[in-house]
Nucleic acid binder design. Structure first.
Length: 751
DNA sequence: GCAAGGTC
């Protein structure tokens, strides 16, 4: 049997469908889908089975003896043994049983570095049961009949060096990440769920955010002034113009000009021109995420939706670096899918073109094609946001075949009492690709038809007080773009890294803002372990991986070097341990300050009770016992916003996998809570005190009889009876008896 | 309980 192994189930299914002469048979092998078919007949008959993995099916970790953070020093992780264990047992079992049957194995995982490693992982498992089985490797960039048939007709060799390169990344990430995470968490005294993570990708990303916040903090705004006028032409049409000194840095200077301005303006110069906007390039993951982000979807949400559209066959694979359609993709056929349906107008317009020439982006890779719509969806079949994403992908796909959009531009130079003013106008002449892709379209800025020498009336003049703004915080889409530029993370992980920073309470808000904890962690790392805070670590890793892949250097050599570097970092850390502990804890303390106590004026802090539950307490305790409650679960983030009534910082609660909950001012929240409690009690009709035994809940005739036998005939008698004794005599639980007694006392109010 | 990378 010929065994073909792909990276994911859907690839297995589609490859089997392409290669099988008749439709393949789906079978389950230890809970995993396998697609079987036969090619040839008689002597040359060959049985084939295609199975899909689920990405990595084995993972690396330290032996479990290293799990105890308190007992095993972080440094010990550097040279600790590294074990490989299955992370998907079902697939490992399936591979073993298929592997035994196989007389040939073809690795058909994705055409990239991780794909090579994933292929070798599978191969190693198969070799455990069938050591001598011959194997080869096919590489393809799109799952189309043409691409697949060509690839399988020309199998090549597995690239073990490339797989080693991938493996070195795994080891380096684990060793550095785990060791530094443990060190920083222990030094900060943040164990358990509250640990402080450090990693090759997340730390440089956090550093970007922290650095931007620092720039904002030291930013000193400069005041400046602008002068605008509103003009009217002979026909009564109006437009506005601005003084050609766009920013006056001296108020006096601006005022002088402003006072000079009279009632008349003369048009000195008209400059007409055209501006063309080229159509956008095909979507890769980053391009898609930032486009989706600009229409209001968060990166994580956009990817989740894209994933579901992909598994339902509506769009192609959403995790790709590629921005160039491969030759093997029949683009005309992909457009023809839309000849009917809501996009027919657009599809037909494209199909009328004599030639379809798509745009090309800068990145051309072999992993997957750019994201394109794979089949026709009906709006009714999709949820609102799914449709939004689907439509975005369809429109972007179309736009890559469309012509440029062309603007007519007009620049005016005007004179008012020898002061120069300018006005710019733009009018869309040809929609071009913007007809297909109408997102974030700039609007026309229309100016009236004018000629040089025209006189205009100044109908309004104004001088505006402004000041320069600090650099803006990063939005998530922007952050993902920067990460890509710096080589941080991959198409499949960048959005996850950002959401990791959110769930670890390193950042909050949108645009993104770091907590004080982040400042403290980054300060420490930058001082003593700068390598991990910079994108250069990834660059060096990439260079080394390339060398491993080219066979110029052994994986072990790279790992040894990396471990030596980390050991040096640790000797710095150990030398400065006291300082690190102090500065980390000072930074962490900042994030716990809520404001000032309304009773004594001291600081209110997030604290922990002896039992471990969290509350807001006064730092003047025990002299002051003011306190406010906090929710039991979730990370607590103190945000900048302050309550106008109580002056306390607002609080946000972050629960993994859930939307953050803005609790607001903890005091307002508590007052609100008390109010609703009171209302609820007021609304609850007071239960009337039962008059007779038989009116009690859960007392039937039989029980009433038993009670009577025990000498209990009235509710008063029941209320006064010894519950334990009574329970024994009538053989009923003490709890039940006690419940009766509370209702006999009309105890609803006492609760 | 630690990373980042696959996939769902």
């Amino acid at each position: 049997m010929h065994l073909i192994v792909t990276e994911k189930n859907i690839a297995a299914r589609r490859i089997a469908a392409i290669l099988a002469p008749k439709s393949p048979k789906k079978e389950r092998v230890s809970g995993v889908d396998v697609y079987r078919y036969e090619v040839g007949s008689g002597e040359s008959r060959q049985e084939t089975a295609v199975v899909g993995l689920s990405g990595h099916i084995v993972g690396i970790d330290f032996p479990k003896e290293y799990n105890n953070w308190q007992k095993i020093d972080a440094r010990a992780l550097i040279d600790a043994e590294i074990t490989t264990t299955p992370i998907n047992r079902k697939i490992v079992t399936a591979l073993k049983s298929l592997g035994k049957e196989a007389d040939r194995v073809t690795i058909a995982t994705d055409y990239d570095r991780e794909g090579e490693l994933i292929g070798v992982e599978a191969l190693n498992i198969i070799k455990q049961v069938n050591p001598k089985v011959p194997f080869d490797r096919v590489r393809y960039s799109a799952i189309t009949p043409k691409a697949i048939e060509t690839a399988f007709a020309n199998p090549t060799n597995v690239d073990f060096n490339l797989a080693d390169a991938g493996h070195s990344r795994q080891v380096i990430d684990l060793v550095w990440g785990a060791a530094l995470t443990r060190y920083i968490s222990l030094a900060a005294g943040r164990l358990g769920k509250m640990f402080l993570s450090v990693g090759r990708v997340q730390s440089p990303t956090l550093s970007l955010i922290v650095d931007r916040e620092k720039e904002r903090n030291i930013f000193v705004p400069t005041p400046y002034w602008e002068i605008h006028v509103e003009l009217e032409d002979a026909a009564g049409e109006t437009f506005s113009a601005q003084h050609s000194t766009r920013r006056f840095l001296e108020k006096e200077e601006a005022s002088k000009v402003f006072r000079k301005l009279g009632k008349k303006a003369e048009l000195k110069e008209i400059e007409k021109g055209t501006k063309t906007d080229q159509p956008p390039t095909p979507f890769n993951t980053t391009g898609f995420i930032s486009a989706a982000n600009s229409i209001g979807l968060s990166p994580v949400n956009a990817m989740r939706i894209a994933e579901s559209l992909y598994t339902n066959g509506y769009i192609s694979y959403p995790r790709t670096d590629n921005t160039v359609y491969p030759d093997t993709l029949d683009l005309r056929a992909q457009i023809e899918i839309f000849k009917e349906g809501p996009f027919r107008e657009y599809a037909n317009a494209l199909l009328e073109k004599p030639e379809l020439v798509p745009t090309r982006g800068k990145k051309e890779t072999t992993d997957h094609p750019p994201i394109f719509p794979a089949s026709l969806a009906k709006e009714a079949d999709l949820k609102e946001e799914e449709w939004k994403v689907y439509e975005l992908v369809v429109r972007r796909f179309f736009a890559t075949f469309a012509g440029p959009s062309i603007w007519e531009t007009m620049r005016l130079k005007l004179d008012i009492e020898e002061e120069e003013f300018r006005a710019n106008g733009a009018r869309l002449l040809e929609q071009g690709w913007r007809w297909y892709y109408p997102y974030n379209a700039p609007e026309d800025r229309l100016l009236p038809e004018l000629k040089e020498g025209d006189l205009l009336k100044v109908i309004k003049k104004e001088m505006l007080d402004k000041e320069t703004q600090p650099p803006g915080r990063y939005g998530q889409g922007r952050l993902i773009n920067i990460m890509e530029d710096l080589g941080l993370g991959t198409k499949a992980t960048r959005h996850e890294i950002i959401s990791k920073l959110y769930s670890r309470a390193y950042i909050h808000g949108n645009p993104v803002q770091p907590t004080n904890t982040s400042f403290a962690v980054m300060d420490t790392l930058e001082k003593y372990s700068p390598t991990i805070t910079k994108p250069d670590m990834t660059k060096l890793l990439e260079e080394n991986m390339d060398k491993i892949a080219e066979g110029k250097i052994k994986e072990d050599t790279v790992l040894d070097e990396s471990r030596d570097m980390l050991k040096q970092v640790f000797s710095e850390l150990d030398k400065n341990r006291d300082n690190i502990i102090e500065s980390l804890q000072a930074g962490l303390r900042e994030d716990k300050i809520i404001g000032n106590c309304s009773l004594c004026g001291n600081e209110l802090m997030i604290r922990r009770s002896k039992r471990g539950s969290r509350f807001i307490g006064c730092s003047n305790y025990p002299n002051c016992t003011f306190s406010l409650p906090l929710p039991k679960s979730g990370q607590i983030v103190v945000i900048d916003k302050q309550c106008e009534t109580h002056g306390l910082h607002h609080i946000r609660i972050i629960n993994q996998g859930k939307r953050p909950w803005d609790l607001g001012c903890p005091q307002c929240n508590f007052i609100e809570w008390q109010k609703t409690q009171q209302e609820e009690q007021a609304q609850q009709p007071k239960k009337e005190k039962p008059k007779f035994i038989k009116d009690l809940e859960g007392v039937g005739k039989a029980t009433a009889g038993k009670l009577e036998e025990a000498g209990i005939t009235s509710v008063e008698a029941l209320a006064e009876a010894d519950p334990v004794e009574l329970a024994k005599t009538i053989k009923i639980s003490v709890k039940k008896v006690k419940n009766w007694q509370t209702s006999c006392n009309g105890a609803v109010e006492d609760l």
